[in-house]
Amino acid sequence: MTSEKPSGVPSPADFFGWLNQMLLLPTTAAAAVVPPTTSPHADPLAMWKNFVGKNEEIWVNFLQQIVATPEFAQAFGRTANTSASYRLMVKQAAKAYLEAADMPSREDLTRLAEQVVSLDAKVDDIGDALGDNLVGITQSLSRVTSLLEIVLHQVELVERKTLTSEELAPLVERLAALEAKILGTSEINSLASRVEVLEAKTPAQIDLRPIEERLAALEAKLPDREVFGKVSTNLAALEGLLTTLGQRLSGAALTLEEAPKSALSRTAPRAKKAKPTTELNTEELG
């Protein structure tokens, strides 16, 4: 029960107590409705409102007590059950009649509508699935768009060619860093110093005098063209003589093979005398 029983209110089972209360209501209400001298109430509705208001508590408690009784609950339930039974009976009769008349019943139409609802649910499910895919595609496209924007920006920078000093500043810094790195290496420094030493050794500073002297001595030793011609003629003549001598010696040798050994000893010194001339000429040309 949601409300407590107020004092002076009869128990739900006390029928005569409630009857007495109800019979007394008009008396108590009438006293409340009599217009006070300071506030006239000419309106009958206001009088009714006042009547209800003054007796509200009694009415509320009265009915609250009633609805909270098991008897009321039973009556409430039985009414609902009877209503349901009657409705079921009418429903079944209507269904039988419509079937007999070869007409669709409410049940048939409901089944059809259920199929429509089911289709609607499927369409919604498909829409949802498509939506999920679209979300994924949209996200991918968004990422691609972002990348393209970056590329586009870089292309624009290149196309503009004239870079602002602010845009150049980082590039200049990077170049300076590279330059510093190159110049600072020890290998480069070593190579540079060796090149410098080589550069310092110019031909004027190299001592060529001994070579020049040796060349002059050689030049001095060389005979002039006329002398050289005479020498050449002499050598040709000498060659002729030697050839003749060779032939004669060959002939002599054949004779000697037949002659006594004492004759051979007299011709041998003559062949030895030609040798110094040949040696002299060779030295002069060397």
Partner: peptide, 11 residues
Amino acid sequence: NFDVDQLASAY
């Protein structure tokens, strides 16, 4: 007191 199944079935 109250038969909810019957009510649901009827209505």
